[in-house]
């Protein structure tokens, strides 16, 4: 019992970094996903192809390697320093998940019924107004359940930043285990429980969004 409390206190020290990385990764990846998803839906061929290239590169390579690039390779090669390792971690996760999530954005926009665009043309709305007032509000409703799923995945992906030396929950768990080898099972059990507790609000969010998304959409 004592060791459970002791380990928990150690792991707690890592919560701050995990939450910071999670918070900024969610914000940035969401923005990236929206921008990239809209670019992919655009009729501008250059924008479309360029974004497609970004999406395939980041979906097609491993996140852990991307993390190593941003924190070790880029500074060595080009003398690009992203401030601190925490920003390297956030950037890698955001670009990676932004690429995945942009596909939900693109797919949802494409899934709004074509009649919706026709009705808004008949009301003489501009291209921008059609997107903002008719297409996106419906596309966002369709995106939400899968978006929630990705948030949970981002939380789990934050544990990779311990590999570039960031002091998150898993990092403290590893440190503790290395000096208390016999307690490895209990350490990693607690690490799992910590992540699960952090995921609970995201799981609840996803459930709620599944209900929201059932209303107010014209499927194509």
């Amino acid at each position: 019992m004592d060791s459970i409390i002791e380990i928990s206190l150690v792991l707690l020290k890592g919560i701050k970094v995990t939450l910071i990385v999670l918070f900024f990764s969610i914000i940035f990846s969401t923005v990236i996903a929206l921008v990239a998803g809209l670019s992919r839906s655009s009729s501008n061929l250059l924008l479309n192809k360029f974004t497609g290239f970004y999406v395939e590169i980041f979906r097609g390579t491993s996140l852990i390697v991307q993390l190593f690039w941003f924190s070790y390779a880029l500074p060595g090669l080009f003398n690009i320093h992203l401030g601190s390792d925490i920003w390297a971690g956030i950037l890698a996760i955001s670009l990676n998940y932004g690429a995945y999530m942009s596909e939900i954005v693109r797919g949802s926009i494409a899934a709004v019924a074509p009649g919706q665009t026709e009705a808004s043309i008949a009301l003489n709305m501009s291209k921008f107004q059609r997107m903002r007032m008719v297409i996106l509000p419906q596309a966002v409703r369709m995106m939400l359940p899968e978006y929630g799923n990705y948030l949970i995945q981002i939380l789990k992906a934050t544990s990779l930043v311990s590999l570039i030396g960031l002091t998150d929950i898993l990092y403290y768990g590893d440190i503790y285990r290395s000096t208390h080898l016999s307690e490895a099972p209990i350490v990693y059990l607690l690490v799992l429980i910590f992540y699960f507790i952090l995921a609970l609000p995201l799981i609840a969010f996803t459930r709620k969004m599944e209900k929201v998304s059932k209303k107010g959409v014209a499927h194509g």
Partner: peptide
């Protein structure tokens, strides 16, 4: 000057009836 009514209505499902009618005059 042209308006159109469609076979499948194409109402905006995320807006109330009133909002369906008000959106275009306000923004367009």
């Amino acid at each position: 000057d042209i308006g159109m009514v469609f076979q499948h209505f194409n109402l905006f499902p995320h807006m109330t009836i009133l909002e369906n009618c008000m959106t275009a005059p306000i923004h367009v």
